[in-house]
Design a protein around this nucleic acid. Structure first.
Lengths: 110, 110
DNA sequence: TGTATATTTCTATAATTCGTGATTTCTGGA
DNA sequence: TCCAGAAATCACGAATTATAGAAATATACA
């Protein structure tokens, strides 16, 4: 992951509603949720939610797919994993064998 | 970790210079670096660097310790780990056994 | 005590981000 | 084709945050 992507992911998550959305999607798991249901779950205005989903989507943290007139959102675990690897790159002088494998198991999740 | 702490950590890292500082401290490892050396390494103004180190410090991502007239900064790995656990809480419906252990090995790093 | 070095704090300006309401696009069904 | 529901986009005022220069604080050493 490049720095630019990491920055957009981190600043996307550094926002209360977007963090709530992300964690909600983490909780519901691989099936994701449609925008309307997320709005209901988080009691948010549809346009605000849409804007925030767009930010998360541009950051690659969630992916969307149309389902009739609904749009379903899912968390993108690969992006999280890349972000962690970026943050921990060259940890302790570049011995990747110490740190990076710690995140490999994320691949198995979701 | 509480949401408030996660938000401050994430928004602290969602800033180019602060992300650079954090990754620099990750790279140098447990010995950390003094403010002046960080400023040299990142070619930043001392006051800007100080402000950003303060943000990272308040977010718990780094800790500082005075050494004579220098101040040494180190990355705080425990905060990173708590942040990851917070982000992944109740992943896939609450089966913590799938996700959280993935981060336990962070404890052994640094 | 006096001076130099390292870092922080203060202050003002510039830039970015946020939330809301209104409008628009897209889809499915009558 | 027309209408209703779902979601996205646009525009704008308000609030927050960033930056740089100048001044202040803390420490070491002569």
């Amino acid at each position: 992951m490049e720095k630019k992507n990491a920055l957009s992911a981190l600043s996307a998550l550094g926002h209360e509603q977007r963090l709530d959305i992300f964690r909600h999607l983490v909780k519901v798991g691989p099936d994701g949720a449609v925008a309307g249901d997320i709005a209901t779950a988080l009691s948010s205005l549809p346009n605000t939610l849409s804007a925030n989903l767009s930010v998360l989507s541009q950051a690659g943290l969630v992916v969307s797919e149309r389902e009739g007139r609904h749009i379903r959102y899912r968390v993108e675990m690969k992006t999280m994993q890349s972000l962690l690897e970026f943050l921990m790159a060259d940890c302790c002088g570049g011995d990747l064998s110490v740190c990076v494998p710690a995140f490999d198991s994320l691949k198995r999740c979701c």
